[in-house]
Write a protein that binds this DNA or RNA. Structure first.
Lengths: 167, 167
DNA sequence: TATTGTTATACTCTATAACTATA
DNA sequence: TATAGTTATAGAGTATAACAATA
């Protein structure tokens, strides 16, 4: 299956063909890489990308993050964060800590076991990603990063505008 | 939620920080755009991205595509294509046609109603995508397309190698 | 009243594997 | 035997809405 023609890009057919082709190519690239990462996480570590992402957030914030902060950063709604956190707590990889001064909230943070497990996964994850971009020169990597920076900023501007208009 | 810090990129922290940051930025961009497309398809047309993608394939192949071809092109397994096709058939948007000389297979193609519905959706879809890349010059669009072409080709090469090794 | 987080629910998408019919 | 497609099932991932506790 993986070697067959990838024809998602067939969708582009209009006067704005350039933008459409770019979008379909962007989508194809991210799907191809994501499939390998998800598969690897499942096969080698019996985990999932959202779980990995949640742990990655906590690894960057050793003091812990509140559920709501996790929800924002992971771009998913609160119920999902509760579910993933429950799983990770049950496995001893993260813990909920009381927040002084606000008894509604928790700080979620990695346990030592969780930190160790994450570092193990992150090492392998890094190899997948390095391999994924192996075909590009450092200069290409930099150009791509800068160009996608413009795309990302533009999306955030659009979303900001939508939110502002809704207020 | 949409305006909060997007901190998926926080994951990059190693000696291969460049590749990791690039991957996380690529993922963020495609997620941001995809969320808007999925939301728009749901709200304005009560449909989903996989359904739209299937119809887009058929629009490019007026003679029809076999279930297996659709499965390849959409990068999903056969059972899923059956399910989506069943939905679209029930709504009168696509039809299964007998294939001469192979009574196991069908050709799936858009009905006139399906073609009309798709064109309607594709027009709106194009506007979302044009808006998504509005911040980039034609030159940027071209650079990005070329660079992502290298990325895509490299993924396909990797997958080819994996398939070959498995044989 | 508003906010934090949980619970309950439902739906889409996906892969796997067993199955039917045909090649 | 192999292939095209279907069915059945299970699980990931997500959103929504009602809810409890606290601010």
């Amino acid at each position: 299956m993986l070697t067959d023609t990838l024809d998602l890009e067939a969708r582009a057919h209009s006067e704005h063909a350039q933008e459409l082709r770019l979008w379909l190519r962007l989508l194809t690239c991210s799907q191809l890489i994501e499939k390998r990462v998800r598969g690897g996480l499942r096969e080698q570590f019996d985990t999932t990308l959202p779980r990995f992402d949640l742990m990655a957030q906590l690894e960057r914030h050793p003091e812990g993050l509140k559920m709501k902060e996790l929800s924002h950063r992971l771009m998913v709604t609160g119920g999902n964060v509760t579910g993933i956190t429950d799983q990770l707590v049950a496995e001893g990889l993260v813990e909920r800590m009381a927040v002084e001064g606000d008894r509604r909230a928790f700080l979620v943070r990695l346990t030592p076991a969780g930190r160790s497990a994450f570092e193990h996964m992150a090492t392998q994850h890094e190899q997948w990603i390095v391999e994924a971009f192996d075909g590009l020169s450092p200069r290409d990597l930099d150009s791509l990063h800068k160009l996608l920076g413009k795309v990302k900023q533009h999306q955030l501007d659009i979303n900001q505008r939508i939110v502002t208009e809704a207020e």
